[in-house]
């Protein structure tokens, strides 16, 4: 048994496929690559694959992760090569690494912060955007409506916006960077932030790109409630979810 973790890109047209469809796509690619997949027991044996938290539909990402259990060990370089030869265009494994045999199945449950770069193309007044950002970040609460097909409910997403900044401005538009809470303890969506900034006009093209996944907000929050810190969970000591993170060699302060 061996466990392999891969960091991969999702871009171009495949950004329009959902999380579930993506999982099936990865499974099939690994079957085509004829990897020695470990299968679950039972009537309906299936490979054991876990994915990092879903990307919003239409968003691209280059810090996406999946883990897969193999029945026998394999060289990560060869594995990366074989998977990439079998992946549809738009999906590409950038690095692959093996976890030590004693490590339990990686399900990325500790990932709770996502970093996005959002590009808004069209006529945008950058100075206005800066003011708007400062105003938003100064608010006590930011209420959005959620629900989709279900009756909408109100939610305060202010605590989930850890950082928000104007990264670039040009004639064509602006680029924003934001770091948002994600995962089972609640989170904000980048589209919601863009809507709060009133940047989502029909005359604009907006592209969402996820640039990083981190673990650590939960730690910060625990510290805060234990009285060692105040305010929203400070991203004091986040772990960027990378190869070095999972081998616990180095942690990174963003």
């Amino acid at each position: 048994m061996a466990q392999i973790i891969c960091r991969y890109h999702k871009r171009d047209e495949v950004r329009w496929i959902s999380h579930l469809d993506l999982k099936r796509t990865l499974e099939r690619a690994m079957r085509r690559a004829q990897l020695p997949l470990a299968l679950s027991q039972g009537h309906n044996p299936h490979p054991k694959i876990s994915l990092s938290p879903p990307l919003p539909l239409g968003a691209t990402g280059d810090a996406e992760l999946f883990s897969v259990q193999l029945a026998e060990g394999m060289d990560p370089g060869e594995l990366k090569q074989r998977i990439n030869d079998s992946l549809p265009s738009g999906l590409e494994v950038m690095e692959a690494w093996v976890l030590p045999a004693h490590r339990k199945k990686e399900t990325f449950g500790d990932i709770d912060i996502a970093q996005y770069s959002v590009t808004v193309k069209g006529e945008v007044d950058a100075a206005r955007v800066s003011e708007h950002i400062a105003d938003l970040m100064g608010q006590e609460e930011l209420i959005v409506q959620r629900g989709g097909k279900r009756p909408p409910r109100s939610l305060d997403i202010r605590p989930f916006i850890l950082s928000l900044a104007l990264a670039q401005a040009s004639e064509d538009g602006v680029e924003l960077r934001m770091r948002l809470r994600t995962g089972s303890h609640g989170g904000a969506r980048p589209q919601e932030v863009i809507e709060l900034l009133a940047l989502n006009g029909a005359d604009r093209t907006i592209t969402y790109h996820r640039t990083g996944l981190f673990a650590g907000a939960q730690l910060g929050a625990e510290r805060a409630s234990a009285g060692r810190s105040t305010g929203a969970p400070r991203a004091g000591r986040l772990h960027r979810w990378t190869r070095s993170r999972s081998s616990r060699e180095r942690s990174e302060s963003p």
Binding site: W16, D21, A29, G58, P88, G90
Partner: peptide, 10 residues
Amino acid sequence: KPARYTNGEW
């Protein structure tokens, strides 16, 4: 389901 209108399937 925007993937109904895109392509690039294997």
